[in-house]
Amino acid sequence: MKKLLLGAGFLGVAALMAWGFDQAMFVAPTEATMGDVQRIFYYHVPNAMLSFLFFAISFVASVLYLMWRRSAPERAQTADAWALAGAEVGVVFCSVVLVTGPLWARPVWGIWWTWDARLTTTLILWLIYVSYLLLRRFAEGAQTQALAAVLSIFGALDVPIVYMANRWWRTQHPAPVFGGGPDSGIKDPVMLAAFGWNLLAWAVWGLMLLGVRVMVERRKQRIELAASQAALAER
């Protein structure tokens, strides 16, 4: 039953992504100054927004883990699974942002990369969460989860700096499309629809990936717990 649901879910997501692709590539009108390359925006921005969401999930789960670590160990384990899954999926989405950005910048700005505040801070954010995943590999035993949770909180402190960097400092990166002042927002309704469909498709895909990853991590935790209890019982 579970497998059937998962399979149906993946089919649904695939259909949604195909629909979003059609909207972005064929239905939405070509942008006046940038031309077809602007269509990468339908992928770049949703992925950026969602990577922030996943890092936020990882941060909240890390805080919950530290809160419940002593009082509710079982719940804390679930929180830890969410923290790990959020960081992993967030790194994947952030990687998409860092790949699609230069692809767009090369024809429009004439350069692949510039060390402007927002690009730099997004890269720093990516580096911090990669180091989080490395820490989870390197640290051993029960302390891993607490140490990783602490690092995740430090990483999350960087997120507001990333978000505000675009407004505090004059940067080459385009001003925020949404909520960036009276002139912001997408004016063309067809473009807005294409953006919305892609945001929905990537959100459903990402959340599904997150759910599956949490399930796998929970199963791993249970197997490890059973193994350690069996080892104790043998003595």
Binding site: Y132, L135, Q143, L147, D158
Partner: peptide, 26 residues
């Protein structure tokens, strides 16, 4: 203090310190 009890702690410290320190470096 965080990396002291992990494997390859000498390697781990720069790996987690440098990204966090980057904004201050800048």
């Amino acid at each position: 203090a965080l990396s002291i009890r992990s494997r390859n702690r000498e390697l781990l410290l720069p790996l987690i310190l440098f990204p966090i320190f980057l904004p201050a470096l800048l």
